[in-house]
């Protein structure tokens, strides 16, 4: 539920959490990203950093430059300036990312977990079953049939948390318990309401359904797309997965390795929340692909 007024919650001496509601309605993330953009535009004195999430935005501030009380007043002013969620227009790029669904590498990763930690079915079969899909192939069709909204970039460098923008492509699934101790780099996972791409080979809890051969961050800033940035995606960008086979996976992997891979990413466009919501309302949401 969206709160009538956002809640302001202190986090020690230099953080404040602004919470717009208490569920995972995508409108609440749009508000958090609207406030992120407004803070940047306003260049509010004392604001050091922001980190958006599903229904909240955490703001880091320097208390020598702005008091907690004054920061709350500034945040309330900027939030009232946003208007209603339908009024929001967010700067957004669309990135086309190659994805091999049902790939051999994440299959091995699941099998390794199954052998060493806890027995489990092949993740895509499991996710297809809990969502009532025919099979893992339909899962791949549905997952690649929508643009995914980047809710936040977080946890590990460049890792996007994403939600399907097309409600007909929404997938929900329980996460691993206990979590994996390692994950194939570039693995595409689904868990809860979200999708993600593993940017480090570390632990994880999402169900693995595919793998991308392209990096989402590059501390050496080697590929052309990373010339002016370290991570590929920002919150409010969108991702469309382009299904590929193993041969093309290896081709792209080789082009990434030799530094010649060109990403396909659009320029910034204005994403109108109002237009998006109108489109969603026009859909027969019972349909699947």
């Amino acid at each position: 539920m969206k709160f009538d007024q956002p809640k302001y919650l202190p986090g020690g001496d230099h953080f404040i959490l602004v919470q717009f509601g208490d569920d995972a309605s995508i409108d609440l993330n749009f508000m958090a990203l609207g406030l992120t953009a407004a803070l940047k535009e306003d260049a509010t004195k004392g604001v050091v950093d922001t980190n958006p999430s599903y229904n909240s935005l955490i703001v880091e501030y320097e208390s020598d430059d702005i008091s907690y009380a004054d920061l709350k007043i500034e945040l309330a002013r900027l939030i009232s300036g946003l208007g209603s969620v339908e009024d929001l227009e967010l700067e957004s790029r669309l990135a086309y990312l190659p994805a091999m669904y049902l790939d051999p590498w994440t299959r091995d990763c699941v099998a390794d977990y199954s052998e060493k930690i806890a027995p489990r079915d092949y993740d895509p079969d499991f996710v297809a079953e809990v969502n009532g899909f025919e099979d893992a192939k339909q899962l791949a069709r549905i997952h690649s049939g929508t643009e995914h909204w980047v809710v936040a970039v977080c946890s590990t460098p460049g890792l996007p948390l994403m939600r399907a923008l097309d409600p007909r492509c929404a997938i929900t699934s329980p996460k691993y318990n206990p979590p994996r101790t390692w994950t194939t780099l570039g693995a595409i996972g689904v868990g809860g309401l979200s999708s993600s791409i593993y940017t480090t080979p570390g632990p994880g809890g999402y169900n693995l359904i595919g793998r991308t051969p392209v990096p989402l961050w590059d501390p050496q800033q080697r590929l052309p797309v990373f010339k002016d940035r370290v991570v590929l995606l920002d919150a409010a960008d969108r991702v469309k997965f382009v299904p590929i086979g193993e041969e093309e996976f290896e081709y792209i992997e080789a082009r990434v390795a030799d530094g010649s891979y060109e990403f396909n990413i659009t320029a910034y466009q204005r994403f109108s929340v109002g237009a998006y919501k109108k489109w969603v309302a026009s859909l027969n949401q019972d349909g699947r692909f």
Partner: peptide, 19 residues
């Protein structure tokens, strides 16, 4: 709401303050 997760300490993902 179920999207918070099942354990009492679970909540919908949010940014963490240092400390």
């Amino acid at each position: 709401a179920p999207e918070n997760g099942s354990d009492p300490s679970n909540t919908i993902d949010h940014g963490y303050p240092i400390g």
